[in-house]
């Protein structure tokens, strides 16, 4: 099942188009080259080291809630 957690952008390095994102307690470096106008605090879906698209904070919250309900984020 191809699941992807919403991650929150914490910092951005504009020179390299890389960002540090937070997936819960875990922080990760990802490329933000594939999305336009990425900003700190935006939520993005991550796949194979790339932020694929932005989602709204409401969608992110709802998705994370669903993951929690499914017991996937324990």
């Amino acid at each position: 099942m191809c699941l992807a957690l919403p991650a929150k952008i914490m910092t951005i390095d504009e020179g390299s188009d890389m960002a540090t994102v937070a997936l819960g307690e875990v922080k990760k470096e990802v490329s933000i080259a594939l999305i336009e106008d990425a900003k700190i605090n935006d939520y993005v879906l991550i796949h194979v080291g790339y932020a694929l698209n932005k989602i709204s904070p409401e969608e992110a919250e709802r998705t994370l809630q669903l993951f929690a309900e499914a017991g996937l984020t324990e």
């Binding site: 099942m1 191809c2 699941l3 992807a4 919403p6 879906l45 796949h47 694929l52 989602i55 969608e59 709802r62 998705t63 669903l66 993951f67």
Partner: peptide
């Protein structure tokens, strides 16, 4: 919610 949960 489907495409958000199974987004790939």
């Amino acid at each position: 919610m489907l495409p958000l949960l199974f987004s790939i």
